[in-house]
Nucleic acid binder design. Sequence first.
DNA 1: CAGCATCCATGTAGATACTG
DNA 2: CAGTATCTACATGGATGCTG
Lengths: 144, 144
Amino acid sequence: MVSKLVLSSPQYETPPANSPAQADVYEQACPSRAILELIADKWTLLILPALRSGRRRNGDLMRVIGGVSQKMLTQTLRELERNGLVNRIDHQEVPPRVEYELTELGRSLSDLMRKLDGWVEANIEAVLKARADFEGKEHGGNAQ
Amino acid sequence: MVSKLVLSSPQYETPPANSPAQADVYEQACPSRAILELIADKWTLLILPALRSGRRRNGDLMRVIGGVSQKMLTQTLRELERNGLVNRIDHQEVPPRVEYELTELGRSLSDLMRKLDGWVEANIEAVLKARADFEGKEHGGNAQ
DNA sequence: CAGCATCCATGTAGATACTG
DNA sequence: CAGTATCTACATGGATGCTG
């Protein structure tokens, strides 16, 4: 379940370690890499910013985030909780009522993620144009 | 090869469209989602910031980015090129010399990504602590 | 050196059915 | 309503060998 967090590749060479306890995402063996992979996640990138407006129930999130399955929602929320980015508030009622909210840590990260979402929404035109151009280059400029 | 970019799920419900041509990552049917998925990528998150210091050769990137395979490097770079985020400069020499550099668009995105990397490096302690606490909560507070 | 083609083990995520 | 469990198709990505 958390298997992806294990750095199991054998070929990493830990250098003389010039920088002592510096976290470095470019070091394969650095734990920060595992955390990077956690946030390099499609659903995380949507869920975390979605919580910025306040507490949200499971069903709310299902509705607001188009296309997410119950499974992926729960799974991602658990990971986020485990990493201290969200709090899970179970009101212990029947029918169940569970709310999720950002922690301090989660909020600071969600700020950055919102900017990413914003970048995407703002630059989609440019990207789509680039794709069109690329297709053109491929077909026209090279073979054929 | 680019199959992941197709929004193929059939169950999306396009609502009355209150917001006209607004890009919205929360809409499953919105193209911005495809772009979001592009940048929600472990290697993109490393490669793009790595190019901020200037042009880089394939081999350079292989060395600086711990654990990346030739396949994933090339594949990711192609995707980035296709989306207008990097330029590929083939010097047409033998032995081959190919350089990659950020485009304007890529630079603006890489700024945000660098911040993400920075966040990870800065908050790794907090996250690791949260994980430890979470383990404790699970074992102590619940069953068992 | 840069990169492609192929093979293949593993991981991922959707669908479905069920529980308290 | 919130969540779990199971099954499975599919994508992912690593390893290897080959090319100009």
